[in-house]
Design a protein around this nucleic acid. Structure first.
Lengths: 197, 197
DNA sequence: GCGTTCATGTAACCTGTTACATGATTCT
DNA sequence: AGAATCATGTAACAGGTTACATGAACGC
């Protein structure tokens, strides 16, 4: 249901095509909701059926025609109504967290490498958010204040994951675990224990 | 695909029924993956078809029989293989973040109330994690170290959301936004601007 | 010549949720 | 008397991904 609201929010600052919305969602700092164009087109026609959006076709030559969607009054009330509902917390659902629950059943060496790879991605994202964040600093426009706060959440998320990675790598380092230097104990398959046949 | 791995991880410390796994997932600190029993039973039979788990029926009187699943050798290699794959980052997908992108189109008063409600939930979760976290402190068992690190991620997540809420409430307070005391400007529907018909 | 951008859409599939179904036992 | 726990499962639906399909224009 919420993708429809995210699309409506995207339409609050003017008419857009499905393609425009998809690009905005793709742009990492553009919007904190992601969707493929296939899903966006599907939801746009539902919004139209519900009377929350209307469309008009812009004829183009050379390129395919654009179909611009605009939010209606009913759509605007839908947004207000939605904001009054209590919102759900996003549950933590991460492969890492599951793997950490059974370190003795996985490839620890590979996990370390994966943590480092993830850290790089988080620092990468961080930098991109930072630029947008700085640009909004100090604005007193209501929407800018909101976007600034949203970027803050995103930056905290990236920063904390990256920093957690440092601590995790320390505590999972061969030396901290007392592994023998050079010995690879990471993929020894345990015998017996909890398994049948 | 990852629910299957989460189930396998749950089976690494002994045979369990679908019911057991569902309870473990339900327990907020029990596992960082959630699923309803309906899905768990479905995935368990897929795991069996794939040869990653085997089952045996325990006859009970009075209660329905239990069907215990155990991980096989193939299942164990599946886990190791999975941990070698780079894991996906969980995307931020939160109603709040979307609403913050269009503060002038939503009910600001309701948003403030929702932030406070969310903070309470985050502080609640925090306390529950803290207890488990403290219990694992100082252990040198590999699995305990992993679970400690996983709980750390969860605690950071809860703590940071709660703290962000304080800052957000400050910056979105009527006084900070220069709203007139007592005046409710939160649900005035703007006229025109970006809308057609 | 080849990949990218623009621009729309459909179909099949996978994952996850909600609701339905059953039935004895134990707790309040 | 009524609710919760134990224990399994199915069916329908909702939300999201992947792959297929088309076709012109533009930059390298």
């Amino acid at each position: 249901m919420s993708l429809q609201h995210a699309i409506l929010v995207a339409l609050t600052d003017g008419a857009k095509s499905g393609y425009d919305i998809a690009k905005q969602f793709d742009d990492s700092t553009g919007f904190f909701w992601r969707a493929r164009h296939s899903q966006i087109y599907r939801e746009l026609s539902k919004l139209k059926d519900r009377g929350w959006a209307i469309s008009e076709e812009i004829v183009q030559s050379g390129k395919p025609n654009r179909i611009l969607f605009s939010i209606t009054k009913a759509g605007r009330s839908g947004l207000v109504e939605w904001s009054r509902q209590p919102s759900d917390v996003q549950e933590l659902k991460d492969d890492f967290l599951v793997q950490l629950y059974a370190l003795d059943s996985i490839d620890l060496k590979a996990l370390r490498a994966n943590i480092i790879a993830r850290q790089e991605r988080h620092r990468d994202h961080m930098a991109r958010y930072q630029a947008k964040y700085d640009a909004l600093e100090g604005s007193s426009d209501l929407n800018d204040i909101g976007r600034h706060l949203a970027l803050e959440v995103a930056m905290i998320y990236e920063r904390e994951w990256a920093e957690w990675g440092d601590r995790a790598l320390e505590r999972l380092s061969p030396s901290a675990l007392g592994e023998l230097a050079g010995a690879d104990t990471s993929n020894i398959v345990p015998i017996g224990g909890g398994e049948r046949r």
